[in-house]
Simulated scan of single mutants.
Amino acid sequence: MRLLILGTGSMAHNHAMHFGAIKEVTIVAAVDPNLIRLQAFGLTHSIPRLFNTLEEAIAWGEFDAVANATPDASHCVTTLQALDADKHVFCEKPLATNYTDALAMVTAAQQSGKIGMVNLSYRNIAELSQARDMIRASVIGTPHHVEASYLQSWLVSKHWGDWRSDPAWLWRLSTKHGSNGVLGDVGIHILDFVTFGSDLDIDAISCRLKTFDKASENRIEGYELDANDSFVMTTSFSNGALGVVHASRWATGRINELKLCVYGDKGGLELRHWHQGTSLAICTGADVDDGNWQQVEAPAVRTTYQCFVDAVMKGDTQEPSFEQAAKIQRLLDIAMSSM
Rank of each mutant, 00 (worst) to 15 (best):
G181K: 06
I135A: 05
D226E: 04
D265Q: 05
A96Y: 00
G315L: 04
K327T: 11
D289L: 13
F19L: 02
P33R: 01
V186P: 05
P48N: 06
V31Y: 09
A21E: 01
F90H: 06
L95I: 02
R302Q: 15
W169T: 05
G61N: 10
H177M: 01
R136Q: 15
E297T: 07
S216T: 15
M11C: 13
L3M: 04
V106E: 10
D229N: 04
V288C: 05
N119A: 09
C76L: 04
L200K: 08
V288F: 07
L151D: 15
I115V: 03
D162E: 04
L332V: 09
W171E: 08
D226G: 08
H177S: 10
A29T: 01
L191Y: 07
E217F: 15
D185K: 15
R123M: 12
R254T: 14
W250H: 03
E55R: 09
L128N: 03
G184I: 04
H75G: 00
L332R: 13
H88M: 05
F322R: 07
L170I: 05
D316R: 14
R123S: 10
S216K: 14
R172E: 03
N180D: 00
H246N: 14
R2L: 11
S121E: 14
A298M: 07
A16W: 01
Y263E: 13
T303L: 11
I58W: 01
K327S: 11
H246M: 15
N52W: 08
N124P: 09
S236D: 02
I36E: 10
E270P: 12
T303N: 06
Y150S: 13
V296L: 07
E224M: 02
A67W: 07
T97P: 06
A300C: 02
L120F: 07
K210P: 04
W160D: 13
W160N: 03
G141K: 14
L260H: 13
M134G: 08
H18N: 12
T79K: 02
E257Q: 15
N119D: 14
Q276L: 14
E323L: 11
Q306H: 11
I47V: 04
T303D: 00
T100Q: 06
L50I: 05
F237W: 02
K327H: 11
Q110D: 09
V245N: 00
K87Y: 06
D185L: 15
C76H: 12
S157F: 09
M313T: 13
A335G: 06
E127I: 14
A102N: 04
V106I: 08
N256G: 11
F322Y: 11
I22W: 02
G116A: 02
M339L: 12
L280N: 08
D86S: 12
H144S: 13
H145F: 15
T44I: 09
N124L: 12
H18C: 12
K327A: 12
V89W: 00
I5C: 05
P33M: 07
A29E: 03
H144M: 15
T278H: 09
G178R: 01
